[in-house]
Amino acid sequence: MIQWVFTETGNWWALFLLVFATGEHINYYHIRLSYQTPAEWRDWKKRGWQRSVLARELGANTRGKQND
């Protein structure tokens, strides 16, 4: 972000990295964004966006600690 604001060279590279990092954060901690096989795409069309595996595990772990 700093490189984008204060320099003229490398701005597109910095923007790409920012967008990629944001997408990866969403993919790991919130919503699953990566689907590789045709079967996964058909499942996505039926059920829509799914929570990522890590988000489900973190949610289950957090709920378990609150009940103790």
Rank of each mutant, 00 (worst) to 15 (best):
M1P: 11
Q3A: 08
Q3C: 06
V5M: 07
V5C: 12
V5W: 14
V5R: 07
T7R: 13
T7M: 06
E8A: 11
G10A: 02
W12H: 09
W12I: 13
W13D: 04
W13I: 10
A14H: 05
A14P: 04
A14S: 15
L15K: 00
F16N: 08
L17I: 09
L17Y: 06
L17M: 07
L17D: 02
L18P: 00
L18I: 09
V19K: 02
V19H: 05
T22H: 13
G23H: 04
G23C: 13
I26G: 00
N27E: 02
N27L: 02
N27C: 05
Y28H: 02
Y28K: 04
H30I: 04
H30C: 01
H30W: 05
I31E: 00
L33S: 06
L33C: 12
L33H: 03
Y35K: 01
Y35W: 09
T37C: 03
P38R: 10
P38Y: 12
A39I: 03
R42F: 09
R42I: 06
D43H: 12
D43W: 09
D43Q: 12
K45G: 03
K45P: 00
K45H: 11
K46G: 02
K46T: 10
R47W: 11
R47K: 14
G48R: 13
W49D: 07
W49G: 04
V53R: 08
L58D: 07
L58R: 12
L58M: 15
G59F: 13
A60D: 14
A60L: 15
A60T: 09
N61H: 14
T62W: 14
R63Y: 09
G64T: 03
G64Y: 06
K65R: 10
Q66G: 01
Q66T: 03
Q66M: 04
N67M: 09
N67K: 11
D68T: 04
D68Y: 08
